[in-house]
Design a protein around this nucleic acid. Structure first.
Lengths: 259, 259
DNA sequence: CGGTATTTTGAGTATCGTCAAGGCCAGTGG
DNA sequence: CCACTGGCCTTGACGATACTCAAAATACCG
């Protein structure tokens, strides 16, 4: 993977990848890297059970984890996705409230909870980065809420696609093709997507094809979507702010491609 | 208000009320209290505009603030409520992503952002408390998401009522009456509640009366609900965990009443 | 090339959103 | 003290949308 800026395979845990964590004192980073170990999960495996108080803090290396809750009637609801670079596991105390499962095969970098906390106490910068991380996570959760508030499923799906474009851009599934189009790899299955959007797989399918009929997207494969009309999707989602974020992404991409 | 354990009106800002903050070194607390000032807002007033980077961190003293986003078509969506003891305003950097408005008349205790950050850097305990606070906020946001995922409005309303019972119990609107019943004061108007649940006021109204017809609640006044059947509500919401939290509340209340 | 899992489509029903009208309560002014 | 007015909540009727169940089509894998 050429994505990793510093350190090759020898740097087992990818913490240095974090832009926000990259300024941390070298010795602290060394301690962190020394205390970590990589763990592999295959799709569908449970990483942490809801209610547990796991003894580690972890960082996703590759793949997708889903944050979910199983409801009384057996249905599960997905409240978020964790991707490359996301942290999970609770620092200090408090149990995990949601089950974490691997949505795809995934690699996770684990730190002993005690060790992590010790390092945290020694480094206000790290603690601060962590806090900012959690704050942005909070905003993301509220973005999901905004999406869920949309009455029409097409609107929710439109919002989801835009979030995928803007937030998960760093990861390798938004493949920029040319001036107007973005190819998005939808990382989860239809049933999972349905649970995330608070609906059923049939409705998700219909919504995809409705957006295609409107000319806003092309369905290249069930899991590969070409976004043709960002503004249209934003209008459908009722949230023009999302369009702004994607536009930002596009200009950034253009710049980096020129460089 | 007899609610405040330590200090009367002389302790202008109610920070000491926080159970989690009460263990902080006295001088730090003094500094905090010295740097704060109370601000009043009347219902409907804007506290912070989305996109702003306000120069203060604040703590709600009384009343309700709503965290909301105005969508392209002019409708607004509410993503959360802030009550007595909740903190808002972003520490360190990053702008506020949602508009904050007073839902009722409210008092807010403001700290100079710089001052607050300085004190934060001097006190790992305070920073840690703040982090735990944000983490629980994150869980709350995900609870809202779970509620929003319910297809039937009655289910969402049931979930809302249970959250009101469990999370907002410390504030003075869950009035315990006797063994089986809880009287809940719904703090926001029907339109606001509709925006919070992602629906319309008419549907909210119908849902209230549907739950009443099922015998799960009594509508004493439009804004005063008697909860008769916690289990039933939890089943309607599809989330038995919520019932557990309310049960916990009930037993706690019973104990404290005996004492 | 066959078998399985996933996705898609179709038909019927339930639920919700919309528009419009009616009721309830509080505050105002006679 | 009572009628009036305005805001909010409620109710009713109708159309739009999504959910359910069932079956077909497609993609995936060996």
């Amino acid at each position: 993977m050429s994505v990793i800026p510093n350190g090759g395979p020898a740097t087992a845990c990818g913490l240095r990848r974090f832009p926000k964590l990259s300024q941390i004192a070298g010795d602290l980073m060394d301690d962190l890297e020394a205390s970590c170990h990589i763990q592999h999960f295959s799709a569908g495996q449970v990483v942490v059970e809801a209610g547990d108080a796991p003894d580690f803090v972890a960082c996703v290396q590759s793949g997708y984890l889903r944050l979910q809750k199983t409801l009384a009637d057996g249905r599960r609801h997905i409240v978020g996705l964790l991707v490359e670079g996301d942290l999970f596991g609770r620092v200090f105390d408090a149990p995990i409230q949601f089950t974490i499962e691997a949505a795809t095969d995934a690699e996770v970098c684990c730190f002993q909870r005690r060790t992590f906390e010790d390092i945290l106490l020694r480094s206000p910068e790290l603690e601060r980065s962590l806090m900012l991380n959690i704050l942005s996570e909070l905003d993301r959760a509220r973005d999901w809420m905004t999406i869920l508030s949309c009455h029409k499923i097409t609107g929710r799906l439109a919002g989801f696609l835009l979030i995928l474009c803007s937030r998960f851009r760093a990861v390798d599934h938004v493949v920029r093709v040319d001036g107007e189009c973005l190819d998005v790899l939808v990382p989860i299955s239809r049933p999972d997507l349905a649970h995330l959007l608070g609906t059923r797989r049939e409705s998700v399918s219909r919504a995809f094809h409705a957006l295609e009929d409107e000319g806003m997207i092309d369905i290249l494969r069930p899991d590969l979507i070409r976004v043709r009309d960002v503004e249209g999707l934003a209008a459908e989602a009722g949230d023009e702010e999302l369009a702004g974020r994607v536009a930002l992404l596009q200009s950034t991409r253009n710049l980096s491609r020129k460089a």
